[in-house]
Computed example of a mutant assay.
Amino acid sequence: MFVQHPIAVLDSGVGGLTVVKEVMRQLPREKIIYFGDTARTPYGPRTPQEVMGFTREIVSYLIQYQPKMIVIACNTATAVAMSDIRSSVDIPVVGVINPGARAAIGRTSTGCVGVIGTEGTIRSEAYEIALRELSPHVQVISQACPRFVPLVERGNFRSRETYDTVRDAIGHMKRYPIDCLILGCTHYPYLTDAISEVMGGEVALISSAEETAREVSAILQDKRELARSNQLPVHQFFCSGEPCMFRLIANQWLGEQIELTPVVWQVPTIG
C-alpha cells in the first residue's frame, strides 16, 4: 500500500501558516504537518544559539512523522539554522529567504528593495546577502520591526494600534525609492493592509510564501514524490503554547483551504 509522507512545516508561531496556505493552494493533495512554537515566540530577539536549539528540537520532533521534506517557514530560523538542519537530515530542507529574494529581484524596477523582519533576521543580513548574490548593485534598505510579531500572535491585525505601530516602525522608509518591500517574516502578511497603507499602493509587498510553495512543488516533482492519492489528506497542526488563539487564527487565515479537509489539532509536550 502506498504511504503518503507529509510535508513538515515549522515556525515560531502562526506566521508559517501563510506558507501553509500557499502550499495547500498549489498542492492540495499534499498532507501538511505544521508546528508553531507559540510557547517561545518571538524568535527575533533571541540569540542565534537559542534559535538553533529550538529549531533542532522541533525538527527532531517532526521527524517521527517521516516527512519527505521540511519547510522552515520562519525567516529567523532560516537565517540561523537552515544549513545545520540540512546537514542533519536526509530529506530536502527549504527556507523562505532565497525564494523571497528571487521574487523581489524579479519585481523591482528602481533597484531599491526594502526588507522588514525580526531583529534576528535583519541582524543576520541574510536577505542582503541573498539579494546581492542575485543582483550585485541592488540597494537594500532594511528595518527590524520587533513589535509586529506580538501583534499577530494576539490576532491584532487591523486595529488603530496596528496602524500606528506599523507607521512608527517603517514610515521613514518612504524616503527611499523603494518599489518593492520584502515581508521578511512570515507573520507580516497578516499586517498587509496596514503596511500597504503606510508604504503606499505603488510599493509591491513581497511575501515569500508563494515562491516557497513553488520551490516545494518543483523539488517534489523533480524527485517524483508528489502525492498520488485521490483521497483528501488529513493535516496535523501542533502548537507548543496555548491552543485557542492559535486555532482561531489558523481557521481565519486558512479559511476555505481547510473547510473541506480533515484537520487534527494537537499540543505536543515540547517547548
Rank of each mutant, 00 (worst) to 15 (best):
F2S: 13
Q4S: 12
Q4I: 11
P6A: 03
A8K: 02
L10F: 10
G16P: 09
V19K: 08
M24L: 15
Q26V: 08
P28H: 04
P28A: 04
R29D: 07
R29G: 10
E30K: 05
I32Q: 00
I33K: 02
D37M: 04
T38F: 10
A39Y: 08
A39L: 11
A39K: 12
P42D: 06
P42M: 09
G44Q: 07
T47H: 04
M52K: 15
G53D: 12
G53Y: 07
F54W: 04
V59L: 08
V59I: 15
V59D: 07
S60G: 09
Y61A: 04
Y65E: 12
I70Y: 02
A73D: 02
A73Q: 00
N75H: 07
T76S: 06
A77V: 10
A79Q: 06
S83A: 12
S83P: 09
D84F: 09
I85K: 04
S87C: 06
S87K: 10
S88R: 14
D90M: 05
I91Y: 01
P92R: 00
V93C: 06
V94M: 02
N98T: 14
G100M: 05
G100L: 08
A101L: 01
I105L: 03
T108Q: 06
T108V: 08
V115S: 13
E119W: 06
G120Q: 10
E125G: 13
I129E: 08
I129W: 05
A130R: 00
L131N: 05
L131C: 06
L131D: 04
E133G: 14
L134T: 09
V138T: 03
V138L: 00
Q139M: 11
Q139F: 08
V140Y: 09
I141W: 07
S142A: 13
S142P: 10
S142W: 04
Q143F: 01
Q143G: 05
C145I: 09
R147W: 12
F148H: 03
V149L: 02
V149I: 01
L151C: 02
R158D: 15
T165Q: 02
R167E: 14
D168A: 07
I170E: 03
H172F: 13
M173W: 02
R175A: 15
Y176D: 04
D179I: 01
D179S: 03
C180V: 06
I182K: 06
G184A: 02
G184F: 04
C185G: 05
Y188V: 02
Y188L: 01
Y190D: 05
Y190F: 15
L191T: 05
L191S: 01
D193E: 13
I195V: 14
S196T: 09
S196Q: 14
E197S: 15
V198E: 07
L205Y: 01
I206W: 04
I206V: 14
S207P: 01
R214H: 11
I219H: 08
Q221Y: 13
D222S: 15
D222P: 12
K223E: 09
R224F: 11
E225K: 14
L226H: 05
R228L: 13
S229G: 11
P233W: 01
V234L: 10
C239A: 04
S240R: 04
P243H: 06
C244W: 12
M245G: 11
M245K: 15
F246P: 03
L248E: 12
A250D: 00
A250Q: 00
E259V: 08
L260I: 11
T269L: 13
I270L: 15
G271F: 10
G271L: 08
G271V: 11
